[in-house]
């Protein structure tokens, strides 16, 4: 199991120091995503989802348990990971293109500028921003910035992509556009992805399996396989099969929030 999985989280517990003592956020949590897989993690607000991304990225170490990426134990940050956040922070003093090449300056500092530029342009083309490479980030819309952020997270050929609610702050239509962009990227670039989201439709549309976390301290409460293939259209979300799946997830979230259905 551990050897086959690209992301393998083994019995991890984590807590934070607060004024009122230690606050446990993850408890005996396990998760495995196979190579090329796409897992979405949903759960109540503040249940420890972002902690999960920081653990995988090696930015923090768990109190208990281990995390493996491609069979290797994670003890520190590693260049095989790409990250994108809800806040698509840009280096405003750089052009869009130079924002995308930023990770290459760390991961492959000796690679020629021509090669770096070529790689960045290739990704910008995939997200339809080829005409914006010389623009400043301040000239882009929120959706465009998030596209640039996705390019930046993929530019150094990461094996694992960790997305922490990247579409959370976008309006509904832009969000749907970006879902399609995500699918387009997945077809052309190979990566294993873990997506944190609050949006159930997003989790179903983008992933192969949806993992519902319980309230803090988070445990895996429910796993739902998504029965769709590679080619997905937005209309697929409105079939009765999807509706049933979404309704099932919705009730799981309610359980996670600790509310009975009668109350709602």
């Amino acid at each position: 199991m551990k050897d086959k999985a690209q992301i393998y989280i083994d019995d991890v517990s984590h807590s934070y120091e607060t004024e009122n003592g230690r606050l446990p956020v993850l408890k005996d949590f396990s998760l495995s995503v196979e190579k090329g897989g796409f897992a979405a993690v949903v759960g109540p607000s503040g249940c420890g989802k972002s902690t999960l991304t920081r653990l995988i990225a090696g930015l923090i170490r768990p109190d208990k348990g281990e995390i493996y990426l491609a069979g290797e134990k994670v003890t520190s940050p590693r260049p095989t990971v790409g990250m994108a956040f809800q806040n698509p922070v840009m280096l405003e003093w750089r052009s869009v293109l130079k924002n995308v090449t930023l990770p290459l300056e760390i991961v492959k500092p000796r690679q020629s500028w021509q090669k770096q530029r070529e790689r960045a342009r290739e990704l910008l083309r995939m997200v339809s921003l080829q005409d914006f490479e010389d623009k400043r980030p301040s000239e882009l819309s929120g959706g465009m910035r998030q596209r640039v952020s996705l390019c930046r997270s993929l530019v150094h050929y990461p094996e694992v992509l960790v997305l922490d609610e990247p579409f959370g702050a976008l309006d509904a239509f832009t969000r749907e556009e970006l879902w399609l962009v995500m699918h387009a990227l997945r077809k052309e670039v190979s990566f294993t992805c873990l997506l944190i989201t609050h949006d159930l439709r997003e989790s179903v549309f983008l992933s192969d399996e949806v993992i519902v976390l319980s309230d803090r301290p988070a445990e895996t409460q429910h796993i739902a396989k998504v029965p769709f293939g590679e080619d997905r259209k937005l209309a697929d979300l409105y079939t009765s099969e999807s509706t049933q799946l979404l309704a099932g997830l919705r009730s799981q979230i309610e359980i996670a929030q600790g509310k009975s259905k009668e109350l709602l």
């Binding site: 090696g58 930015l59 990250m83 806040n87 922070v89 990770p103 760390i106």
Partner: peptide, 10 residues
């Protein structure tokens, strides 16, 4: 996030 985009790459 500014710190994390570079820190996550080591």
């Amino acid at each position: 996030e500014y710190r994390d985009i570079l820190r996550s790459l080591g």
